[in-house]
């Protein structure tokens, strides 16, 4: 599959990362901005979807405003427990992102739960089941940049 995006694809992508119009025909509105037909906008977004670039068009929620609690967690885990890590996080929808990193703290994940108690219970469960050696919660003290919009 051709992974190349042309300039219009990139403009559309930058635009929809900021906002998808709340309108009955959002793609028609986008089309007017870019001088394209509704069908053309839809087919360009569909292609970027098939390429795995666009994952979802939907609301990005301000989770604390819903009483939810989320945090980034750094952990240390031995290589031999990586399989347990994978198995464990697979079954926990509240763990939304998980990465292995080439750092002393080699396992990083984010958890978002209904409330703080549930959040901490999930961290406890992962610690136990995946045999994490060290675990540290890293809440944001301040956010300087929440970038999703890229100049691409």
């Amino acid at each position: 599959m051709d992974h190349a995006l042309d300039e219009l694809d990139r403009d559309i992508l930058n635009r929809i990362q900021t906002e998808v119009p709340l309108a009955e025909r959002p793609f028609q509105m986008l089309g007017r901005e870019f001088g394209l037909s509704e069908t053309e906008v839809l087919s360009r977004i569909s292609r970027m979807w098939d390429l795995g670039i666009v994952r979802r068009l939907g609301p990005i929620i301000n989770y604390p405003a819903w009483g939810m609690s989320g945090v980034l967690v750094a952990a240390q885990v031995d290589q031999e427990h990586l399989e347990a890590v994978q198995d464990c996080i697979k079954g926990i929808p509240e763990i939304t992102h998980a990465y292995l990193r080439d750092f002393e703290w080699n396992f990083w994940f984010t958890v978002i739960a209904e409330n703080e108690d549930k959040r901490d219970a999930i961290i406890e469960k992962v610690t136990r089941e995946a045999d994490l050696k060290k675990v540290e919660k890293l809440p944001q003290k301040k956010s300087f940049k929440l970038g999703v919009k890229f100049e691409i």
Binding site: Q17, E19, V20, G52, V54, R56, L57, I60, I61, A65
Partner: peptide
């Protein structure tokens, strides 16, 4: 303010990042 925005979520990797 309960929803930050209604927008596309993207993956950076396939975009060439």
């Amino acid at each position: 303010g309960r929803v930050r925005r209604f927008a596309a979520s993207v993956r950076h990797q396939p975009m060439g990042f």
